[in-house]
Simulated assay, not measured.
Amino acid sequence: MARRKKVYEGKAKILYEGPEPGTLIQYFKDDSAPTAAEPKPAAVDGKGVLNNRLSEFFMSGLNAIGVPTHFIRRVNMREQMVRMAEIIPLEVVVRNFAAGELSARLGIPEGMALPRPIVEYYYKDDRLNSPMVAEEHIVAFGWANQQDLDDMVALALRVNDFMSGVMLGVGVRLADFRLEMGRIWEGDFMRLIVADEITPDSCRLWDLRAMTEREGQPAADAVPLADVYTELARRLGVLPSNVTHTTKPTLIN
């Protein structure tokens, strides 16, 4: 790994030059993403191995149903080969239930089902704490054009349908999640693809099996999925045989 050229290093991943033109090797670290409560990333033993498997599972599933992603194949326990893409500097957030920032911003009770999935955009800049932006800002500053935005919404909602169904099938509610998207060129044509990763780091997950019941109905305040990386990998059938421990990270807001 030391002989490969590093292209980029983030909070949870490192990108290296790939073995083929137009490819990269994405390496998953054990570091957890910083939060307001814990601004310095902490290592979560085995997290990179599990996130590699989980992102492979979700990206492969999306590719299989015709949603284009950057994922090509898993290389080893911590690495996967991906397509090189021009990353759009936006986080696309899809919300199915009120939680976190949305509840605080609008005073909506935590756990309330939204009338329909809500798509929001956040400008990716750690110095600014990734502020929420409107479509007008995105087009005005040239981060994406209107056709890009229409395509991003369509992709995000297809990912949401797929992810919500998969999660529900293993007793997990997908409250919200974030995506990154990129542009690739195929001949003279540009297309948008889902990039980065899809892991518990980018999702808010509630454990339906642990919800209490009130008069036979699930409680509105579903609880976070405990031991999220290991438990989700186990329920989805992608837990590596050599992972025998569980961890209890803080889920994203």
Rank of each mutant, 00 (worst) to 15 (best):
M1P: 11
R3I: 10
R4S: 12
V7T: 06
V7L: 13
E9T: 13
G10V: 02
K11V: 02
L15F: 08
Y16T: 06
E17G: 12
E17R: 11
G18C: 07
P21I: 03
G22Y: 09
G22Q: 07
T23H: 06
I25S: 05
Y27N: 04
F28C: 04
S32G: 15
A36P: 06
A37Y: 11
P39N: 11
A42Y: 10
A43Q: 14
L54F: 05
S55M: 01
M59P: 07
G61C: 02
P68D: 01
F71S: 04
R73E: 01
N76R: 08
M77N: 14
E79Q: 15
E79I: 01
M81C: 10
M81Q: 15
V82F: 00
M84L: 13
I88S: 01
P89W: 06
V93K: 04
V94Y: 05
R95A: 01
R95V: 00
N96D: 09
F97D: 01
F97V: 05
L102K: 12
S103N: 09
L106Y: 15
L106T: 12
L106R: 14
I108H: 10
L114W: 07
R116W: 09
D126E: 13
S130P: 03
M132S: 12
V133D: 00
E135S: 12
E136C: 03
V139I: 07
N145H: 08
Q146Y: 09
L149H: 10
D151M: 10
A156M: 02
M163P: 06
S164F: 08
V166Q: 08
L168M: 13
L168T: 15
R173G: 12
R173W: 07
L174A: 02
F177L: 04
F177M: 03
M181I: 05
G182L: 01
I184Q: 10
R191G: 05
L192P: 09
A195P: 05
D196C: 09
S202K: 09
C203P: 03
C203L: 12
L208K: 13
L208I: 05
A210Q: 15
T212V: 11
R214I: 14
G216Y: 07
Q217C: 08
P218K: 11
A219M: 11
A220M: 15
L225A: 03
L225Y: 04
Y229Q: 02
Y229C: 05
T230P: 03
L232F: 01
R235V: 00
V238K: 11
V238S: 01
S241R: 14
H245N: 09
T246K: 12
T247P: 10
T247Q: 13
K248R: 15
P249Y: 04
P249M: 02
P249E: 05
N253Y: 06
